[in-house]
Amino acid sequence: MSAASPGRLAWSRLMRHRLAQVSLAFLAVLLILSLAAPLIADWRGIDPTATDLFRRFEPPSAEHWLGTDDLGRDLFQRLLDGGCVSLLVGVSGALLSAAIGAVIGVAAGYLGGRLDSVLMRLTDGVIALPLLPLLIVMAAIDPVKVGVPTDIARSEFFSVYRIIVIVALTGWTTVARLVRAETLSLKARDFTRAAQALGAVPLRIMFRHILPNTAGSLVVATTMSMGTLILFESTLSFLGLGIQPPAASWGNMLTGAQDLLQQAPVLALWPGLLIFLTVIAFNFVGDGLQDALDPRSERR
Rank of each mutant, 00 (worst) to 15 (best):
L241T: 10
D151R: 01
M253A: 05
Q258P: 00
L231T: 12
R18I: 09
S225V: 03
L131I: 08
W65N: 12
R8L: 14
A140H: 12
T223M: 09
A62Q: 12
V103I: 15
L269G: 05
F284G: 02
V103D: 08
R56F: 00
L169T: 02
P245F: 10
D42F: 06
T123F: 00
G83H: 01
L87S: 01
A139S: 15
S297G: 01
S237E: 10
M1K: 13
S185A: 10
N252H: 12
F191P: 13
L129A: 10
A292I: 07
L119R: 03
S234D: 08
D287M: 04
S237G: 13
A215L: 12
S234F: 05
A94P: 04
A221T: 15
A37N: 14
L19N: 04
V165Q: 07
A176H: 03
P60V: 14
R18D: 06
Q263V: 13
W250D: 03
N252V: 10
A99G: 15
L119C: 02
F232I: 06
W172P: 12
R73K: 05
R299Y: 11
S249H: 05
R44F: 05
R56G: 01
S249W: 06
S185L: 02
Q263H: 08
I46F: 03
D70H: 09
L178Y: 07
R13L: 09
G171Y: 11
P6T: 12
L53Q: 02
I127P: 09
T150D: 15
T174F: 06
A247G: 02
D70P: 00
C84S: 11
L39S: 13
G113E: 03
R204K: 15
S249G: 06
A194L: 06
R296W: 08
A102K: 00
G288W: 01
W65V: 15
G112H: 11
E156A: 14
L30C: 13
P133K: 14
F54I: 00
A181L: 02
P246N: 10
L241N: 09
R162L: 07
S249Y: 05
V137L: 15
N213Q: 14
R73L: 00
A197D: 11
V144A: 09
Y110G: 03
